[in-house]
Design a binder for these strands. Structure first.
Lengths: 273, 273
DNA sequence: CTTGATACCTTACGGCGTAATGAATCCCCC
DNA sequence: GGGGGATTCATTACGCCGTAAGGTATCAAG
């Protein structure tokens, strides 16, 4: 399921995102004291999405988690779309914002470290990957994350136009790779059987249904035949023991792909000077 | 909204995907003649998703389009998840499968052409990008597309392990870039105002709410200040006239990013020989 | 104490996917 | 040629969803 955010009134979303409303303790107006707050609601919604996934995120569920009904939320938030906007921006506060490596001139190390942290961020909040990128409304924390990436890319010395395109290149790549890692983890958690077993059963069923698989798809078959094992010595040494195979593979793919991208950036730098 | 496919019974999905069921005209069994078919249902569902997007895709709507009720579909398809699997694979039949350039040894031209066609494919069926990649069930057409990519990558002469990782690098990148293009097109269609106007209004509202934007996000501001115009002479000459600006920009980003990736692959090739 | 604004609840509506049940249709075989 | 039984398709219903409408309880200000 893909969830669209940013569908509500943009102005309302913007004021909520940038907290431009009247400050809560300012006027002690009439009526009962609010027992909820935008922040509390967003926090509950994020916790729920983290724990049970986007499909479990409903206004009723968020309300329950706060000991309120679904409709109580509408006092603070115009609707689910806007709540999603707020959730999305709130978690982006976890993105890294400063890199000492960048100042020492090693843009490549800085970008690699940054990408690694962003990957972990997406794995921590996989539901973020299900929020459509068509959102016209950007919040402060997302802008802060963007600012960091732009700063790191500026350190390459490439011209502004190229930097802008590289931003648009790196982000989709990161999201996609993170999606792969998150999916691998999800699949591992969902299936009771162990990792290799699962693939074995799947391909056995496939081979039974499609006996001529190897002939129809020779290239893919060749790829899989070569054996996925070979743990690529010298990498993933630290703490990769308990990580199941598909996720390890996805992470390695991320590492290699990022390397290729950075090589390409390096080439652009060299070609320019 | 992200939609999960591949959640149903994998064996059932597999037989449906690979059309391993009893052939329809084989046995003229008892009962009324089927007035529907899996293919007709899938075609109707795809048409509906193409025209009105994923959010409009419901069993009732697909049934309506065929002059039947929603429940009638359940005779042919176990559920919505499996229908999504079938839709997903069905459209992937449009992916290109052969490249003469590849045989002439120009792997770079072949990959570029391939990526371009895949991009157009995603733009033609943007809902495909909303189908979660966590699908454990792969269909024949998706495998065929994969086989083509592997073949093209093999032409680089890189070792099998690297090729496998490059597959996992190119696909997320393509999906992400296509998402950006599709989003740009969607935004252009949704907003009545023209493109630059839209951004102008948005940033005006933002600046009003956040007067210190330029100070808080200097790098991003610098990026946008440098002017997005400059049509990059020598490219996009053919037929890019009517394409609105955000989409042109997204396409250019795709082109540049792909170039960077291919440069990286080139570097890997050179570094290896 | 009254007034009126505010927070929260209850109820309800129209959507969704789909389980259960029933009616209509047609081949096969006696 | 007329049941029998399998099969297609429709009807109804259940429990979810987001949220509109309206009621009630709580508080500050006059």
């Amino acid at each position: 399921m893909v969830v669209f955010a940013g569908q509500g009134d943009p102005r309302r979303s913007l004021s909520l995102l940038w907290r431009a409303d009247a400050p809560p303790p300012a006027r002690g107006g009439p009526g009962p004291k609010p027992r909820l707050s935008v922040d509390a609601i967003v926090a509950a919604a994020v916790a729920l999405a983290d724990e049970e996934g986007m499909t479990a995120l409903s206004m009723r569920a968020v309300g329950d988690r706060l000991g309120r009904t679904a409709m109580a939320l509408y006092t603070y938030v115009p609707g689910k779309s806007e709540l999603l906007d707020l959730m999305y921006d709130a978690v982006h506060a976890e993105l890294p914002t400063a890199y000492p490596e960048s100042e020492s001139g090693d843009w490549r190390a800085a970008l690699t470290a940054w990408a690694g942290e962003v990957l972990e961020f997406y794995v921590r909040h996989p539901w973020v990957l299900q929020v459509s990128q068509a959102r016209p409304v950007l919040g402060p924390h997302e802008y802060a994350g963007l600012d960091t990436l732009v700063t790191l890319l500026r350190a390459t010395g490439l011209p502004t136009g190229v930097v802008r395109r590289l931003v648009g290149t790196l982000f989709p790549y990161l999201r996609g790779s993170a999606q792969a890692v998150a999916d691998a983890r999800l699949a591992a958690a969902a299936t009771g059987s162990s990792d290799e077993e699962w693939w074995a059963a799947r391909s056995a069923a496939l081979l039974e249904l499609v006996p001529d698989f190897a002939e129809r798809f020779p290239a893919v078959s060749g790829l899989e035949a070569e054996g996925p094992a070979e743990p690529c010595p010298g990498e993933g040494a630290e703490g990769a023991e308990g990580v199941p195979y598909p996720e390890r593979e996805a992470r390695e793919t991320f590492r290699v792909g990022l390397g290729v991208l950075l090589d390409g950036i390096e080439a652009a730098r060299v070609g320019r000077t």
